[in-house]
């Protein structure tokens, strides 16, 4: 799409996404190990066939590879946003590209949130809520996130006044 918004997410977002996905996958892998172990110890049980298990393992490996090594990079490249006194403009998506426009006047509240992984990279999400929808700008630098949040709320206040 032409004239994409200009600002990018923090480059650390890639690392943070990798870590959070790795943790999720770790749990899946652990679960899979249990099943494999069970299968190998009692091969005659009818619980999952060996082929299903192999297929699941292969799929998991592929997903892990894509999810950890490629997707975060592409996701970061595709994410951009922009805030001005009229609107919040977001663009994201790996296959399906979504371009979102939120008029500043409609913003009900903005907040920043931070989980443990984001915190360790000094990152934070900015969440923008309207009466109908919620939008998220993920993994911004902490200071930038604060700045964006304050900016939106300030613009929203100004916009409210001239309505």
């Amino acid at each position: 799409m032409r004239s994409s918004p200009k600002r990018k997410l923090s480059h650390d977002a890639i690392k943070a996404w990798r870590v959070s996905l790795s943790i999720l996958i770790l749990f899946l892998v652990l679960g899979l190990f249990f099943v494999w172990g069970y299968k190998l110890l009692s091969p005659e049980s009818e619980f999952f066939s060996i082929w299903t298990l192999t297929a699941i393992s292969v799929i998991l490996v592929v997903i892990t590879g894509l999810g950890i090594f490629f997707i975060p990079e592409i996701r970061w490249q595709r994410w951009s946003y922009e805030v001005d006194e009229h609107e919040v403009d977001l663009q994201s998506g790996i296959f399906i590209i979504t371009r979102t426009l939120v008029p500043i006047k409609r913003v009900q509240h903005v907040d920043t949130r931070q989980g443990p992984i984001l915190r360790s990279y000094d990152l934070a999400d900015v969440t923008i809520s309207t009466a109908a929808t919620t939008h998220r700008i993920p993994a911004l630098n902490e200071e930038v996130a604060d700045q964006v949040r304050n900016q939106i709320s300030e613009f929203a206040r100004l916009a409210e006044e001239d309505v």
């Binding site: 998506g93 371009r99 929808t133």
Partner: peptide, 25 residues
């Protein structure tokens, strides 16, 4: 209007088409 969204998947991109969504409360 609460927000407005334009979505484009790769097939639509080739045809220069897109989905247009308007959200209301």
């Amino acid at each position: 209007m609460q927000s407005c969204q334009i979505q484009q998947n790769p097939f639509q991109k080739r045809l220069e088409l897109s989905n247009f969504t308007v959200h209301v409360a």
